[in-house]
Design a protein around this nucleic acid. Structure first.
Lengths: 133, 133
DNA sequence: TATATATTTGTAATGATTACATTTTTATGG
DNA sequence: CCATAAAAATGTAATCATTACAAATATATA
């Protein structure tokens, strides 16, 4: 049985063809794609794929802790869950780079009881865009 | 001369009445308001204030490093620039708490040249919402 | 005071995301 | 194998924050 199929099953997700395709895309393209990008890329092999399905599936994956949403200024990006790490967003070309740094744990704080997630995002200009000037 | 007026001048911003009002609001209400909240609060004293002006002014403040934008799932929040710190967002009541922790510096990385900003945001449930269950 | 410039406003467009009802697919019991 | 119920996928329409833009207003300066 295929690895992705097993993986979805292990997370209580029925491995439909569409779901496997979306998961596989995220797994093979670790460039933090937008919904738009996922939809466009998969439309070639799944011509009837709707954006609503992409949204539905991503939200399903998020609820089952397979995927994380990254909130940026404009579109949301989606990232396969992996080791805790940070991101660097180039505000010129909009590329999102993985940064190999573990976000610090939340300190104890009067108002905080239950921390489920951390997002650590750096903003600036990447090398390529800097050189392009 | 009023403090806010001087402060805006020092940042090369002409201190119009509206701009001072918006700055003062952010300074006195450090609860990371949305554009909506700012507009609604100031409409009482500035009945003709338009949302466009709130947007324009915030973006002006951001360009001049007086204000930072915080990107969350839904609306953007605005925060007066102060000591580097983190945020905790309660995903139940949407409150954004200040967290007194300095985000780590970006590590040296092949793709990164110029880092201008960091956002460190924790997500979870706050004490009040936890108890409300 | 006249005129150029800066600021503010209001309306219309944009565009991502969600709501929702319908259609299609899949699983299961007889 | 068929009938039927449940799940998944689809398409369209609505929502709503944000932006674009042109017109109106206020401000500064000569």
């Amino acid at each position: 049985m295929e690895r992705v199929q097993t993986l979805l099953r292990n997370h209580d997700i029925r491995p439909s063809y569409t779901r496997m395709a979306i998961y596989r895309y995220l797994d093979e393209n670790r460039n933090h794609p937008t919904v738009e990008a996922i939809h466009e890329a998969l439309s070639a092999s799944l011509p009837t794929l709707s954006k609503t399905t992409v949204y539905n599936t991503l939200h399903l994956f998020i609820r089952h802790h397979l995927v994380k949403e990254i909130d940026l200024q404009d579109h949301k990006r989606y990232d396969i869950v992996q080791e805790p790490h940070a991101h660097f967003k180039c505000d010129v070309c909009d590329t999102l780079y993985d940064i190999d740094i573990v976000p610090p744990n939340a300190p104890t704080h009067d108002d905080i009881v239950d921390v489920r997630d951390v997002q650590l995002v750096y903003h600036g200009t990447c090398k390529r865009c800097q050189q392009a000037v």
